[in-house]
Computed example of a mutant assay.
Amino acid sequence: ETIVENKDAKIELFKQLAACVKKDAIIVSNTSGLNVFELVPESLLPQMCIAHWYAPAQLIPLVEVVKSEQAPEEFGKIVVELLEKCGKTPVFMKKFIQGYIANRMQMCMNTEMFYLLDNGYCTPEDFDKAIKASFIPRAVVLGICKRIDFGGLDMTANNYKNKSYTSPPPVDMPSTLAEHIEKGELGIKTGKGFYDYTGVDKQELIAKRDKQLFEVFKLTKKFMDDPV
């Protein structure tokens, strides 16, 4: 199921599915932001799984898989095996949480990014440069948990004890984001966002992005197949 992220639309579709699918069928939703386990008829819960493909799905191998509490463990494993046969990299989560793994990490980084931008600590260009030249390539080799193993769990514990870092306070809308939205600066589709794309061919830019992502994930697969 990959229809629009709209509760009413999904509820209606799941009602239709409940009336026609076999009881041993596995029903899989690609929802990214909705808890579909709360939307499906109770009779479908023993058949429900989520397989969240990360965008752009034709390039990024990750698919986060989670089954309903009522579905058997075997259903989740079948979905994982099918995705592996498709050349994807599935992660079978122990239980559902909105945002799964990758989107929750993305939101953490967005929160920090907007805090730094809103308070004038850096520019978007310098933020991106710092990220690209530091922990993102390191994470390709080590991930996050294994990086802590290499640095020492005691060192990470000291960072928490020293309280040298304070999380940004929650905000309803980052001011930097609101300013761009108000100006109609929505990114490459309008020709300007954090960066200025005036005079840039959008299709060529997207093609360049796709080519570079393809090269990155070829290298990533090499490291994942032969991990540290």
Results as ranks from 00 to 15, higher is better:
V36M: 01
I60R: 08
P137F: 07
P41R: 05
K94Y: 00
A102P: 01
Q212M: 12
L177M: 13
K10F: 06
Y195M: 09
I97T: 12
P124C: 03
I27G: 02
L205E: 13
A57Q: 14
M113F: 08
N162S: 11
K85C: 05
G151T: 07
L219W: 02
Q212H: 13
F194R: 07
A25L: 00
Q212F: 11
P170N: 03
D172K: 06
V66G: 05
E64A: 08
E1I: 07
E38L: 09
E112Q: 14
N110C: 14
K88I: 04
G99L: 14
E185R: 02
T176R: 09
F194G: 08
K192C: 06
K192F: 03
Y121S: 10
T31Q: 05
N6W: 14
I136T: 10
A51P: 10
T156G: 01
I181P: 00
S43E: 15
K67S: 11
D128V: 09
S43N: 00
M155F: 06
I101P: 05
A71H: 03
Y160G: 00
L177H: 08
F223C: 10
V21P: 00
I206V: 12
E179F: 01
V91P: 00
Y165G: 12
Q212V: 09
K67W: 02
V141Y: 05
M173R: 07
K22M: 09
P169V: 04
K221P: 01
